[in-house]
Write a protein that binds this DNA or RNA. Sequence first.
DNA 1: ACAGTAACCTGTTTGC
DNA 2: TGCAAACAGGTTACTG
Length: 270
Amino acid sequence: MPELPEVETVKRGLNEQVKGETLENISFRRGNLRNKIPQKKLLKLCGHKIENVNRRAKYLLFNTSAGALLNHLGMTGTWRLEKTPTERKHDHLSLVFTNGFQLIYNDPRRFGIVDYISQGQSSPWLNHLGPEPLVAEVFTPGYLWALCRRRQTSIKNLIMDQRVVVGVGNIYASESLFLAGVRPGTSCRRVSLEKCQRLVEAIRGVLGKAIEQGGTTIKDFRQAGGSEGYFQQSLHVYGRAGEACSQCGSPIRLGRHGQRSSFWCSHCQK
DNA sequence: ACAGTAACCTGTTTGC
DNA sequence: TGCAAACAGGTTACTG
């Protein structure tokens, strides 16, 4: 479900909803998602305030002075805040706050992660992550170009590799490549420094705009509070196979790279 | 070491 | 209409 803009949107919503609130209890409906949920460790957070909710890559971190709850939404994870909770299918745990509200984690496909991080420590989940694309000092054209020299894969696979740069998933990979004028199947070895420059700018630009518009709602992504994102209106190629390219009118092509659908315009992207 | 594929799940859409 | 296959915003574990 969520790429960087969606996770960032969720993060901002959660800060409005639970920042400063004290955790009273955590109730668990099942013992595992993609990982085994360390229930006992997580219960150490009870009695402590959520200082803030941060984001690293596509991971959310609920920080307290007694450690943090780490969460990855996988494809279908959502948080919803309720005063009088109505149980829904696929509710897996809920954070109960002293103000009477509950923050409930729902995840049908259970590709999500819920883990505990001790105070001041890192987590194995965060170890191999590449730079944040929105931080210009760390995600530079030269950096990307150096990786293009070294690796042997398509440029789309490369920018979706979280070790290379975090936060770019299947939607924004296609969109960035369209904006940069590079076909997704191009071998990264054949991507010039100049193209890397355009690509870095495109990635940063598209992620930034998507955040401004509250993310992309294709199917079931919702902002905190339940409203949809609006960025889907701005998608140039993703999900538009057969439609006319907004720039040149050629039909948008559909193909697959690394088991994922790719969308591109053969005229605008070389 | 690296790249490509299967696997983890459920729900929805597509095609016969 | 019904059923089965294909597909979905992600990541890891395996294979060669």
